[in-house]
């Protein structure tokens, strides 16, 4: 034990470093832990395999989250099925979405731009595709925008909820809230889909949910998604082979309890998946329409981007 002095010095140095790390962490985490009282609340729902967001004013978004720069946001993170993890790596934000719990986290986004939202907890078959996009918009309404770190002073209610479709076209309203609908999938694919959605909207053939008019529903062919379709093995579409004349407007009704899509292509990996027709997300009990005027004659397999095991075939004569 005579030569133990260097060891004590070494242990002392290690302990000092650890105490410094611990104290700094405590200090920083203490600021990060409590959301400012004037934060805007956004509810984040994780579900196999997409994210949905609900703003305080009732606006709902799927796989896209629009926030304003400089405003403190408080996120309430919940899950509808298994454990997910809501993560925005660019802002070092991470919080698990655990069924039966509401986890909270807050942040002030200090740089406008487009960021990646990802799921970091293994959640099943399409875990790797459970991505969404975060849009931080410049805050032009309020000159006193704060950056993170300083005391936030902005009150709620800056957004007036003009609803703009991803490509720029207007999308109809459903009930009290408004809904922006974006197809889940790769970041790289979305630009093409966005412009397609925009074109549809401007040409008056908007295919998003909420546009169903009763006359069209009564006359055209119908495709329904029966209850239980989200479980692999159950009937996915009724009928699963549908034959229509070119120009017919197909009404798709979702009778299941999970969101679905009708998207052309045999699987999400197809090169032209979503190029010919795509209803985007249809929420439970909602309907959507497919206009076959722009679809070439022939056989077109289709699937659900949320549940790729759901497939069917559309024949246009």
């Amino acid at each position: 034990m005579g030569h133990s002095t260097p060891e004590w010095v070494y242990i002392g140095a290690v302990t000092a470093i650890l105490i410094w790390v611990g104290a700094e962490s405590w200090n920083i985490e203490h600021t990060l832990e409590y959301a400012p009282p004037n934060s805007e609340t956004v509810r984040v729902v994780g579900q196999q395999w997409f994210w949905s967001f609900e703003h305080a004013d009732g606006t709902q978004e799927i796989n896209e989250l629009h926030v304003k720069e400089g405003i403190p946001y408080r996120f309430e993170i919940v899950s509808n099925d298994v454990v997910h993890s809501f993560s925005v790596p660019d802002f070092a934000m991470l919080m698990d979405a655990v069924p039966g719990r509401v986890n909270t986290m807050w942040n002030v986004f200090d740089e406008p731009g487009e960021y990646l939202i990802e799921c970091r907890e293994y959640c099943g078959m399409l875990h790797q595709d459970m991505r969404a996009r975060l849009f931080v918009e410049p805050n032009t309404d309020n000159a006193t925008a704060v950056t993170s770190g300083s005391e936030p002073t902005i009150s709620q209610g800056t957004g007036t909820a003009t609803v703009i479709a991803p490509g720029g076209g207007e999308v109809g309203t459903t009930g009290s809230g408004t809904m922006r609908v974006v197809e889940p999938g790769n970041m790289t694919q979305t630009t093409a889909n966005d412009s397609a959605a925009g074109n549809n909207a401007t040409s008056g053939n908007g295919t998003s949910s909420g546009n169903a008019s009763s006359t069209a529903a009564a006359s055209g062919p119908t495709l329904s998604i029966p209850a239980g379709a989200s479980t692999a093995g159950n009937p996915a579409y009724a009928p699963d082979t549908l034959t229509v004349k070119k120009g017919d407007v197909i009404t798709v009704s979702n009778d299941d309890t999970a969101p679905h899509t009708v998207t052309n292509g045999a699987s999400p990996g197809d090169a032209d998946a979503g190029k010919l027709f795509d209803t985007s997300i249809i929420m439970p009990a909602a309907t959507a329409q497919i206009d076959t005027a722009t679809v070439d004659a022939g056989e077109h397999p289709f699937h659900c981007t949320v549940h790729p095991f759901m497939t069917g075939t559309l024949t246009v004569q």
Partner: peptide
């Protein structure tokens, strides 16, 4: 040590 520092854990976790 980096992982256990609370604020950094939210960057590295999972």
């Amino acid at each position: 040590v980096v992982n256990t520092a609370m604020p950094l854990d939210f960057l590295t976790h999972d």
